[in-house]
Design a protein around this nucleic acid. Sequence first.
DNA 1: GCCAACGTTGGC
DNA 2: GCCAACGTTGGC
Length: 155
Amino acid sequence: MPCYWLMKSEPDTFSFDALKAKGSTLWDGVRNYQARNLMRDEMRKGDRVLFYHSSCAEPGVQGLARVASAQAVPDPTQFDPSSDYYDPKSTEAAPRWVCVEVAYDRPFKQGVTLARIKECDALEGMLVRKRGQRLSIQPVEKAHFDRICKMGGLF
DNA sequence: GCCAACGTTGGC
DNA sequence: GCCAACGTTGGC
């Protein structure tokens, strides 16, 4: 039974096209405990992901991805002093931050903008609609996932 | 660039 | 353990 997620990325940093080009990527750099716990405790290989562009001219879901790792692994950037995500309080023996692998799945025929998400009554309750909701990895209900896919021209 | 909302830090 | 101060996110 797959679970459904929305994962935010700033397109200037890592866009959906970048994921397409790369095929898959370690979702590193997450430094929020709630998001970390979701990756560590809840995300499973095969889970479906809405890939969302944030902090850009037109925020919205670009397409689909999947969780590709069986379990979360230590985030290598936490050990790298030259990384923006370096965490001096983390050790290899007791890593504080973990991440999952995320693989490209398929693009939407058309992106589903946040504006449309907010307009759609069937999507009421989606976390991403909530003002001030900063969680970068959000659980999504199956019905909401399916609806977003349909709005994006899939299935 | 503004600023609301939220998470984290640290003094007490 | 409280909470004020601070930093960050992210829509607009």
